[in-house]
Design a protein around this nucleic acid. Structure first.
Ligand SMILES: [Mn+2]
Ligand SMILES: [Mn+2]
Ligand SMILES: [Mn+2]
Ligand SMILES: [Mn+2]
Lengths: 142, 142
DNA sequence: GTTCAAGTTTAGCACAGGCTACATTTTGTT
DNA sequence: AACAAAATGTAGCCTGTGCTAAACTTGAAC
């Protein structure tokens, strides 16, 4: 492990996916909220995630610690450069997974639900495969 | 919430998926191990999951509490009826997700890794869509 | 300018799921 | 039988992510 990245086994990878999952969903939600409402407050995330405002607050604290968000007391949330970048990448990946599910015949509501969890486990290689599929169009199939 | 099941939003669903995820992976691994080696011990799971034996032990404790495994001190693990059933359902779903990824052009190694996380977020509806896809064969496409 | 409601923060709790260090039991070797 | 090694168990720690209750800020209504 001096110079080369340690190869994780598949379960280790799943665990590390989960470690970044909440961060990805939060910055995505914050970015969406800022775009649609002009700003984002903790209470908006409470509605999105259906957890208590305390849980949102503590999660935001970790996001700030990790450099994705900046906050001042009682003020709206702001994304850092890193936060904005993560939000964009997450949104793009999420959207591709969602559209892909639609394309293979999953209903919109289920696609929305399932893609919310699936997205975090989709590697660049799998994402590329899904994109190829979308490009070709499913008309050939169904 | 007296008689009707509360409709979860998509983030709530993802959270509940995660609550059962470890149980699914463990019983699947235990079932595999029993089939291939005749019995399964904690140390086998240590190798599979790459966590400490203490973590395995505590996880097994929760599985026992929840009725999926039974253990006696220093003895191999056994699955309960419920554990065996969960293992079968998990394995089937996992296998479909894996084959599906292969079918859309993902390499075996990546498919193995990604399917390990994705499987837990695949609803029956999405699983059915993947199966339809596998039945048709991807020859039409590629 | 008080008052009140909404939003936010803090304190303190729980459980899941990681860990190391150390103790114990079982099993294999001599 | 004695010893060594492997497996298992226990004690005690940590972080993440959930909660309720209570205190505090802020901004709007009056
Ligand atoms: Mn997302
Ligand atoms: Mn998500
Ligand atoms: Mn899995
Ligand atoms: Mn997951």
């Amino acid at each position: 492990m001096t110079a080369s990245k340690k190869r994780q086994n598949r379960h280790s990878r799943t665990r590390s996916d989960h470690a970044t999952e909440l961060a990805e969903d939060y910055v995505e939600a914050i970015a969406d909220c800022i775009e649609s409402r002009g700003s984002c407050r903790a209470v908006d995330l409470v509605k999105q995630f259906q957890v208590s405002h305390v849980t949102v607050n503590r999660t935001i604290g970790r996001l700030q610690r990790d450099g994705f968000v900046v906050t001042e007391p009682y003020a709206p949330l702001q994304l850092t450069k890193a936060g904005t970048k993560l939000a964009q990448a997450s949104r793009r990946r999420h959207e591709i997974v969602y559209q892909f599910l639609i394309e293979i015949g999953v209903g919109e509501s289920t696609a929305a639900t399932d893609s919310e969890g699936i997205e975090h486990h989709v590697s660049p290689e799998t994402l590329a495969a899904m994109q190829r599929f979308l490009k070709k169009g499913s008309g050939v199939f169904y």
